[in-house]
Each structure stands twice: as C-alpha cells, then as structure tokens.
C-alpha cells in the first residue's frame, strides 16, 4: 500500500508545486528545491546503474557466456575511465591553485581521461552518428514510393527541399530574377514557403496535440488516476 501511496503523494505534491511556481513568484523557491532533489536523485542513480552494469558483465565473464570477451572489455573500460576520472591521472595542475592536489584540469588531452575522450570516445560517437547518412539513403530508397497522390506530393516536396538545401537549388533556378512574378518558382523561395508555412503549420498542429496530451497525461499521474508505472505489489 505504502509502496504505491507515497510515490503518488510525492508526484502529486511536486507536480502541483512546479505548476503553481510558474504563475506565482512566491513559490519559485519551492520549485527550485524540487528540481534540486531530482538532480540529487539522478546523480545517486548513477551508482545503481554502475552496480547493475558490473553485476551483469561480471556474471557474463564468470559464466563464460557467449560474448564474454565483450563484457570483459566493458569492465576494463569502465574501471579505467573511473580511475582516470577519480584520480585525475595525468591531470594538468591548476594555475590558480598549484598547491591544491586534484584541483587541476583532468579533461585536457594531456590527461588520460581527456585523451580517451578526444581520441576514442569522440571519433566513436561521431562514427555512430555518421551511420545515419547510410540509413537515410537506404530508408529513402525503400520508403519513398509514388503509390498515390499524397505520396507523389511528398516526393515532389522532398526533391525541392533536397535540391534547395544545396547549391544545386541556386544553379537550377537562380537565373529566375528575384523580383519577377516567377520568383516564387525559385527553389530557395519554394523551400522557405514549404518549411515556414506548410511544414510549420503541420508541426504546430502536432505540437499542440502533444502538448495537450502531455497535460492530460501529467494530470492523470498527478491525480493518481494512472498508476501503471508503479508496482502492483
């Protein structure tokens, strides 16, 4: 019983405070306290996450399950970064406080932590993001089919935007004088018309729907009508 009632009470109180604080300056401090609590909880939750990460991977290594070598790499990487960060290995001493140990910068590439970030993490994440270019092309090839009138309109819009986002737009239609009656046919004008009127109008409708959806969902949670996120025990 308490396992469900107390979380609902905390949620209802914090939710109500945050809403009221937006309108009444007197309660601003309360909302700051609520937000600080969340920050503290989120920071403590890292321990929970780290514990789980260790438990899962240690179990995988000790039982020599398939892929145990990857688990070992994860554990080594985790332990190394934790050590580099906590002990500021290779950290540059602070100019302002040279006599205070650990006051230096541990994020420069001279330190182990900064080096791993700059030369390992940074290229790896950039590589993952760059995969998007490949997947966008493959998804476009598969999904953009002119099956009906709506999809033909979508295709036409996609072509205009794709061309207008590059110098090809100016190359193809830049010769139309910007002050002529046909200026609206220039790709740059069409792009602005599509993005600022058609796309923005559609996006506003979706955003308003989402905002009302968020408000209604939040209200269901604050009132305790929706308790599906809690254990039923």
């Amino acid at each position: 019983m308490l396992k469900r009632t107390i979380p609902i009470l905390i949620l209802a109180t914090s939710g109500a405070i945050l809403v009221v604080a937006y309108f009444s300056p007197f309660t601003t401090n309360w909302s700051e306290v609520v937000l600080m609590w969340f920050n503290i909880l989120a920071a403590v939750a890292y321990v929970l996450g780290a514990g789980n990460l260790l438990a899962v991977n240690l179990e995988k290594v000790s039982s020599r399950r398939a892929g145990w070598a990857y688990a070992l790499i994860t554990l080594v990487a985790f332990a190394s970064m934790l050590t580099f960060g906590l002990f500021k290995i290779g950290g540059v001493p602070s100019e302002a406080h040279p006599d205070v140990p650990y006051a230096g910068d541990y994020e420069s590439t001279q330190s182990a932590f900064g080096w791993v970030y700059e030369y390992m993490l940074s290229p790896l994440t950039a590589t993952m993001f760059a995969l998007l270019a490949f997947y966008v092309a493959s998804a476009a090839f598969r999904a953009f089919r002119a099956k009906n009138l709506e999809s033909i309109l979508l295709l036409g819009t996609a072509f205009i935007i794709l061309l207008a986002q590059t110098a090809a737009g100016m190359f193809l239609t830049g010769w139309i004088p910007a002050d002529s009656v046909f200026a609206f046919l220039r790709f740059d004008s069409l792009r602005i018309a599509i993005t600022e009127y058609i796309q923005t109008a559609g996006m506003r409708a979706i955003t308003i729907g989402i905002a009302i959806g968020i408000a209604a969902t939040s209200l269901r949670l604050i009132l305790g009508v929706d308790r599906s996120y809690l254990s039923k025990q």
Partner: peptide
C-alpha cells in the same frame, strides 16, 4: 504524438482513464 500518450489510457481500459482521453 498524442496517440502515444493516449496509449496508456487506451490499453488500461479503465473508465477513469478513458474519460480523461475524451477530456483531452
């Protein structure tokens, strides 16, 4: 978007939650 937020209420089938969707 909003369909996603309606999902929880829709799946629960509870009167209160379904009512909140109409209110939305």
């Amino acid at each position: 978007g909003e369909e996603f937020f309606a999902a929880s209420a829709y799946l629960s089938g509870e009167r209160d939650q379904l009512g909140s969707l109409k209110g939305q």
